[in-house]
Amino acid sequence: MLVPHHWEPDTGLTRAATQSWVLRSEGRTILIDTGAGNGKYRPLQPIWSYPNTGHLANLAAVGVRPEDVDIVVNTHLHDDHVGRDTRLEGRDRVPAFPRATYRMPQRDVEYRRPENLPDTVFGRGNQNVYEDSVDPVVEAGPVETWDESYTIDSHLRLELAPGHTPGASIIHLESGGDRAIFAGDLLHGAIQVHEPHINSCFEEDEDGARASRARMFAHAADNNALVFPAHLPGHGAFEMRRRGSGFELTHWAPFSPT
């Protein structure tokens, strides 16, 4: 199930992607995470420095213009999740989605301030992110922060899942008999379903990340919820079940990998 989209057996390398998700719920368009964003300088993250992605074109392809987005949810405030929150207007950074309310976890808004960078695991890897992708939105006014949990509507609920960052979060979707979890960075590779003790190198609290992942996996397995992580290529979403004291991936979502 991991070859070829998630693991290269010849090199031992895993593959990753950066995902945004668009939901339409109760008459509103909701964007979950915004990717790395174009034209932004990341001195210690060259892969994200001055990227030129087709994010807005991809949104347009599914019928979503920036002014159509009602809510932007940032699962946490790393550079590859908030980079498209803003755009340049002249020399100023302004919210990229002009009608949207941005939902940001309060703990990350505080933790990710520039003066705190030296004390974080990611450190200067997140340099400039607050200044060019978070603070302009906060200053413009459309940010609503939250903690512990937040109900978006009758189908969507935000839940704190700390570890990767103090404010890392997941989104629960419930509609009729359907269940889904938008998992943010609780996992970075499909191998973590089978080996949930494995962390990425970016966890601020490694034990907390493992605990949050275990809770999410248990909920997904027990409720037959489709899991949408932020960094899986290929099909990008999956179902899972319990196996002994652990878990296993059972089915990929039935949409074509790209």
Rank of each mutant, 00 (worst) to 15 (best):
I71C: 06
Y50N: 14
P66E: 13
D92Y: 12
D68I: 02
F122E: 06
V121C: 05
W146N: 05
P95H: 11
P98W: 12
V143Q: 08
E115C: 02
D132F: 02
L88V: 08
T120F: 01
Q106Y: 14
L117A: 08
V64C: 06
P43E: 05
G167K: 02
E144H: 15
G63C: 13
V143F: 08
K40T: 04
R91W: 13
P105C: 12
Y150A: 10
V121P: 02
L160R: 14
D119Q: 15
R93Y: 13
V134H: 03
H81F: 13
E110T: 15
V138H: 06
H155I: 03
D135M: 12
Q106N: 14
P98T: 13
P142C: 09
P162D: 07
E115A: 10
P118H: 13
V137K: 00
V109Q: 13
P98Q: 14
A140T: 05
Q127F: 01
L77C: 11
Y102R: 09
G123Q: 04
P166Q: 11
Y130N: 04
V134Y: 02
V69Q: 01
G54C: 12
G163E: 01
V143Y: 07
L156S: 04
Y50I: 03
G125C: 05
V94F: 07
T120E: 03
V134W: 02
R42H: 10
V134D: 01
F122M: 12
F97E: 03
